[in-house]
Amino acid sequence: MGRINRTKLLDRQHDRRDAKLFIVATEGKETEKQYFGMFHSTRIKVEVLATGDDGKSAPQYVLERLNTFKEQYDLNKDDMLWLVLDVDRWGEKNLSMVCSQARQKDYYLAVSNPCFEIWLCLHFEDLNSEDKTCQDFKSRLRTLLGSYNSSNLDLSLYKPNIADATNRAKLLHPKSQHNWPPTLGTHVYRLVEILLQSLSN
C-alpha cells in the first residue's frame, strides 16, 4: 500500500497546497497541542502528534509516533519533523538514546528542562531561582496568570509575548549545542523561531 499524500493533512478550504508542514510529536497530551495550534495559517500547518489516552509519553514512544507518521505520509523535503520532549521524568541515558536516534533520522529537537511549562513561564518573566521542578513552574504560572489549566490555555495571554520568551530562552543557553539544556531552560524557541520565519516568508 502506497503512502498517503501530504495534502490529505491540509484543510482544502483554508490551506494552500504548498503550505509547509510541521509534524510535531509531543510528550504532553494537550498543552503543546493547544500552544502550537496558535501558529496555524494558510502558509503553514502544524500537525501535533500528542500522547493519546494510552499514556505512552516516554521519549521512545514519542519517537515511535513520529517514525510511524513519516512512514505513512509522503512528505515534501521542506516539511519538518520535530520532537518536543521534557527532561523531568526520564533518565538522561534514555533521553540521550532517543535524541541520538532522532538526529540520525534528521528530526529536530525541542527539549525542555524540566518541562514545557518552563517555556510558558518565560513568556512573562525571567526564571525565578526558587523554581526547580515541573510543579514549581505550574505554580509559578498560577501566580503569574491567576490560574493555570494545562488542558485549557488562554492563548491570548501567550501570543503577544512569544518574542520575549524566545529572547529569555536564548539568554539561558546562548551557545548551547546540546540535545537539551544542561541546566534549567528550554529549546522550544528553536521550533518557534522557524514557525514564525515560515509565517513571514
Rank of each mutant, 00 (worst) to 15 (best):
M1E: 06
N5L: 04
R6C: 01
R6T: 00
L9V: 08
L10A: 06
L10K: 01
L10E: 04
H14E: 06
D15K: 08
D15M: 01
R16Q: 06
R16N: 05
R17S: 05
R17E: 09
D18H: 05
K20Q: 11
K20M: 01
L21K: 01
I23N: 00
V24C: 14
A25C: 13
A25Y: 04
A25N: 12
A25S: 15
T26M: 09
T26N: 14
E27K: 04
K29L: 00
E30M: 00
E30H: 00
E32H: 07
E32N: 09
E32V: 07
K33Y: 04
F39L: 01
F39W: 00
T42M: 00
R43V: 02
I44F: 01
I44N: 01
K45D: 04
V46I: 13
E47I: 06
L49R: 13
A50H: 13
G52K: 07
G55S: 08
K56S: 08
S57E: 04
Y61L: 03
Y61I: 03
L63H: 14
L66N: 04
F69K: 05
K70E: 12
K70R: 15
K77L: 10
K77M: 09
K77R: 14
D79N: 14
D79P: 12
M80Q: 15
M80N: 10
W82D: 10
V84G: 13
V84F: 11
L85H: 09
D86F: 14
D86S: 13
V87R: 12
V87C: 10
D88G: 10
R89C: 01
R89V: 00
G91C: 06
G91Q: 14
K93H: 10
S96V: 00
M97W: 00
M97H: 03
C99A: 14
A102R: 07
D106R: 02
Y108M: 07
A110S: 14
A110P: 08
V111L: 14
S112K: 02
N113P: 12
N113C: 09
E117L: 13
E117P: 10
W119F: 07
C121H: 02
C121M: 02
C121A: 11
F124A: 11
N128K: 06
N128S: 11
S129I: 11
C134V: 08
Q135M: 05
Q135N: 14
F137R: 03
F137H: 12
K138H: 03
R140I: 05
R142S: 15
R142H: 08
T143I: 13
L144Q: 15
L145A: 15
L145S: 03
G146H: 13
Y148G: 10
N149H: 09
S150R: 06
S151V: 14
L153P: 05
L155D: 11
L155T: 10
P160L: 11
N161P: 01
I162K: 04
D164S: 13
A165E: 05
T166C: 13
R168Y: 02
A169C: 10
L171V: 05
L171R: 09
L171Q: 10
L171K: 13
L172F: 03
H178F: 12
W180C: 03
L184F: 01
V192P: 04
L196F: 02
Q197Y: 07
L199R: 08
L199Q: 11
L199Y: 01
N201D: 09
